[in-house]
Each structure stands twice: as C-alpha cells, then as structure tokens.
Design a protein around this nucleic acid. Sequence first.
DNA 1: TTGGCAATCTGTAACGTTTCAGTATATTGC
DNA 2: GCAATATACTGAAACGTTACAGATTGCCAA
Lengths: 347, 347
Amino acid sequence: MDRRVTKKDDETSAKERPTLKTLAFMTGLGVTTVSRALKDAPEIGAETRRRVQLVAKQIGYRPNRAGVRLRTGKTNVISLVLNTEHEIMSFVSDIIYGVTEVIADTPYHLIVTPYSRSQDPLDPVRYLVETGSADGVIISRTQPNDPRARYMLERGIPFATHGRTDMGLVHPYHDFDNYAFAGEAVRYLAGRSRSRLALVTPPVGLTYYGHTVNGFADALSEVGASEVPFNTVSIDQSIDQIRMRTAQLMRRKDRPDGFVSSAAAATLAVVAGIEDAGLKLGRDVDVVSKQSSELLHLFRRELLVVNENFRLAGSELARAVLGWIGGADPGSLQSLSTPSEVLPYRG
Amino acid sequence: MDRRVTKKDDETSAKERPTLKTLAFMTGLGVTTVSRALKDAPEIGAETRRRVQLVAKQIGYRPNRAGVRLRTGKTNVISLVLNTEHEIMSFVSDIIYGVTEVIADTPYHLIVTPYSRSQDPLDPVRYLVETGSADGVIISRTQPNDPRARYMLERGIPFATHGRTDMGLVHPYHDFDNYAFAGEAVRYLAGRSRSRLALVTPPVGLTYYGHTVNGFADALSEVGASEVPFNTVSIDQSIDQIRMRTAQLMRRKDRPDGFVSSAAAATLAVVAGIEDAGLKLGRDVDVVSKQSSELLHLFRRELLVVNENFRLAGSELARAVLGWIGGADPGSLQSLSTPSEVLPYRG
DNA sequence: TTGGCAATCTGTAACGTTTCAGTATATTGC
DNA sequence: GCAATATACTGAAACGTTACAGATTGCCAA
C-alpha cells in the first residue's frame, strides 16, 4: 500500500496555518461537522457548536479564501472600477476610504480595477464578470444609458453605480442631488442680484450632466435670470483650457456676473481666468462651486461653496453592493444625498 | 457502478468558463500536458505546445485564480497598505494609478488594505502575512526603525516602502530626496535674501522628517541663514491648527521671512495664516512648498513650488515589489527621486 | 534481439472548502 | 416491541490547478 508521509498526516507540526482539518483533529470531529459548526448550521449540537467555535477562536482559525472561492465561487471581493485619467483626485481617495470603512468588519477585500481613456469602459467590467473576480462591483462616471450597468444586470452580478442611470432598469446607486445643487446655486446668486449666469458643467454624457443642466435651467427661469452659454467648457478639461476659455469669456462685454461650477479643480481655473481678465471675485462676479474638501475657502474667501461628501458616497455604495449580494431588493438600495446650502466664507 | 451525470462530464455544454479540462478535451490531451504546454515547460513537444496555446487563445482560456492560489499559494495580488486618516489625498489617488499602470499587463490585482489612526500600523501587515493574502506589499509612512519592514523581512514576504528605513536592513524602496528638497528650498530663499526661515515639517517619526530637517539645517548653515523654530506644526495637523499657529508666529516681531513647506495642503493653511496676520506673500515672506499636483500656482502666484510625482512613486514601488517577487536582489530595487528645481510662477 | 534512454505524454493526489448522500444512535408513535 | 423519524454526525466527491511518479513510444548501441 502506498503510504508516503504527506505533510498533513502529522497534525502535531504546529506552525502551519490551521485549516478545517486541524480543527477536526483537535476536536475529534469530522471536517464536515467542523465546517457546519462554524457557520451555525442547524443540524449541529449546541455543545459541539460552541466547542468548535471556541477552539477555532483560540487557535485563530481563518477560512482559506482560495478554498472557499474555488468551491463556492464566492470571492469575497468588491471591485471599484476607476478611470485613471478623469476621476477627481479627492474622489478616488475618499471613495476608497468610504468603501473600506464599510467592509472593514466583513471578510471582503477591495480591489481597484483601472481603465484608461483609450479603453472601452465596458472592458474592465467585462473582465471582472468573465473571470468571476468579484462578488460585487462599484462603477462611477455613470451614463443615462450605461452599457456597463446593462451588462451587469444581464449577467446578474451585483453592482452599484455612483450616479443614476435612466434606462428604466432598477439597480442600486448613490447619487448627489446635482439638480438641487445647481438650483440652489442659481437662487443664491440671484439673491445677490446676479442675473447673467454661466455653468461649468460636468462631463457631457454623464447622467449628472443632465441633472445639473436641468437644475440650472429650471432655477434660471424660476428667478428670471439668464444663461450665458459656456458650452465649450466642462470640468473634465485641463486647468489651462478652462482658465483660458474663462478669461476669453470674461473679456466679452456680455460676460456673466455669476458662475456655477461643478468641481473644485475647475473652479480654481475659472477664478484664475476671471483674474486674468482683470476682474475681481465678489465684486464683478460671484462663483458658487461644489467641493469635496475644505479648500476653496482657503483659496479665495469670496468663493461660495457647496460640499459633496465622497467618503459618504463610498460608504453608501459599499453598503448597497453588500446589500444586493446579501439578497436585498436592488430597488431598496438607492440613495440620494442632498446638498448643503450654499456656504459663504465664515470667519 | 455509480454513474451520476456531473455537469462536466458533458464537455459540449459550451457556455461555462473554459478550464484546463476543457482544453484537454478539445486538444485530446491530458490536463497535465495542457497545463505544462501553457507555461512552456521543456518536456512538451513544440507542435503540441503551439497547438494548445492556439486553442487556449481562441477560446479565451484564463487560469482560475482560486485554483492556482489554492494549489500553489500564489495569490497574484499586491496589497497597498494605507492610513485612512493621514495620507495626502493626491498621494492615494496617484500612487494607486502608478501601481495599476505597472501591473496592468500582469496577472496581478491591487487590493487596498486600510488601517486607521487608532490601530497599530503593524495590524494590517500582520493580517496580510498571516492569511497569505498577497504576494507583495507596499507600505507608506515609513519610519527609520519600521516594525512592519522588520516583520515582513523576517517572514520573507516581498515588499517595498515609500520612504527609506534606517535599520541596517536592506529592502526595496522608493523615496523622494527630501534632504535635497529642503536644501534647494533654503538656498533659493537665501538667493532672495530671506534669512530667517521656518520649516513646516513632515510628521514627526517618519523617516523623511529627519531627511527634511537635516537638509534644512545643513543648508541653513551653508548659506548663513537662521531657523525660526516652528516645531509645534507638522503637515499632519489640521488646516485650522496650522493656520492658527502660523498666524501666531507671524505676529511676533521675530517672525520668519521665509517658509519651507513639505506639503501643499499645509501650505494653503500657512498662506492663510500669513494673510490672517496682515502680511503679504512675496513681499513680507516667501514660501517654498512641495506639491504633487499643479494647483499651488493657481492659489497664489507668489508661491514657489517643487514638484513631487506620486504616480511615479507608485510605479516604482510596484516595479520594486514585482522585481522582488520575481527573484531579483532587493538591494537593486531601490530608487530615489531627485526634486525639480524650485519653480516660481511662470506666465 | 535486447536493454537502455530520451522524448512526450498521462493519471493521481493534493491544496481547503462545501455539498451530497449517507450512517448510527436515540426518540417517538402506536 | 417495532417501525418510523428525528438528531447528530461522517466520508467522499468536487471546484481548477500543479507536482510527482509513471507510462508509452521510438531509437540507438551492444
């Protein structure tokens, strides 16, 4: 009979990482029983269950991820899909921290899956799904008709989007209410007697572009102000581009007396452009800007800001994905974050 | 005889993900042969090898990560360990992109492992090593005597540090030459006839704190300038703290006429503090600051900046870890990035 | 002819887990 | 008193991969 000595035949060699087999040996039970006892299966005696769990805790047993994954297909991984060129810096940082906060006391790991400008945004998602690399996916830069959401919905893999879609399909999302933001901004500017407003839009094509533009337009007509078209600019563009275009705009006689800006970095450029044109913030023109960290007021006190909390977004998105994985109704995993009021510099 | 039909007995059910077994069936070979043919093992005939690889490519075979990991222990994962409270925002974003750039055409995934202020920084590293969750680790906020580096060195797990250690142990690292940075900054300020300089230091305890302080001190005595102590402040502190302390300092009659600042966010606060005290940048005081994105010059044109490229750091660190995993000599995987010269605002 | 050897290829076991189909013992119903 | 059933447990198989120990074939030297 073939009786080679395999490493594991000798259970006394203590320094290997404990497995179910180790636990089975220590408790005198079978590995099946141990496996079930650890997950509180009903057909295990109460005392046995406690005994197994005690021993497991004592020796610091942790299930082998590869074993679980191979057997069950469950990866215990959430993937965050990010564009390596267009994401806002603080977005990346904060959303990651938001996600990790939520998954910290779960067995989940977070993997970051990047894609670049040149690639089809569907590529990374397709990769994840085809290779079964994650139990859940978080995507950003969501579009009204988003092929990634559609794809994942078809394939039945849980995901959450940062931003809403508009395809008549239901899925978890977290969004900032950009319609409200743009509206509030316009009303605030109107309250300061600004009546000719320009909008620094989100990237064309993303869902919140539409929300922002609509909120802006609706509020404009509500307060009786007018729009100064500034369509050549969006927050995706380079600082230099935005700055130059803003300066051009501000040198025209029909220049705006107010700006609404969808991102802090763009706002820096807009302000630079305004000043390039020899105008003064707060006197000649007011700017309301979204920001995700408290730096615009250090930059110029005259700026008017609305805060968007990306860390919260990360947490909400993680909660949503985990909820879906856990079997919750996708429709119940949607959340919208209401903007703060417009905040002027305070002491 | 037990002849239940298992799913895989029927190899014609096409829509499952292909495995070695699928390839074996298609080529008429054994799974062992297929496995070896795919990794160019020498004992496989040239034609067989080509045939297998062709078929594999055609049907889009991708090795199952769980299978490989279970069998070999190789995870194909790199973990980036981050502090969730003290990392610089752009650091997180850029270093991640730098890493992903390098691992993009490898089988590696990047997982982000966070830890918070309250935790022992060793915790996440211990977790990674004990559970064998990664083939390689990248850590930041490196200390001269770093328990994490020591631990991983003992356990023999490949890693790279952002910043050097000083324990007489050799391991891969990437660092920015902060000694040179501080020196250049001082010399530049001296060239503008600034002679009473204050230093906004890195977090006390990190290796580059020492480098920065030394570079600052050595250059001070070289140019015959003097230091205005500002020890109560480091870049880890809150914006408000730094701002307040700076304002206090600038109201004293022995105030500095020059600052050297180790981070952009702190610089914003310092400038605010200077202005709180009623002084003017460029006239009463000059500030040289490191920055990792091009925004300080939008903030105040009078600022003098030195650029640190975190994306490069991420790439270098990833290359270093992969190199070590690949068997290279750790001592050969160290790199130091030289600061640009001090840059005033240019048009 | 035969023994040896190189060149190719193959089956089995094992990694750690969960699921399936049982088994053994005690308990219940009548 | 006996079958039916519930309770508590168990071994074997399988997920996809690689390593180990063989197996088969052809060829050459003796």
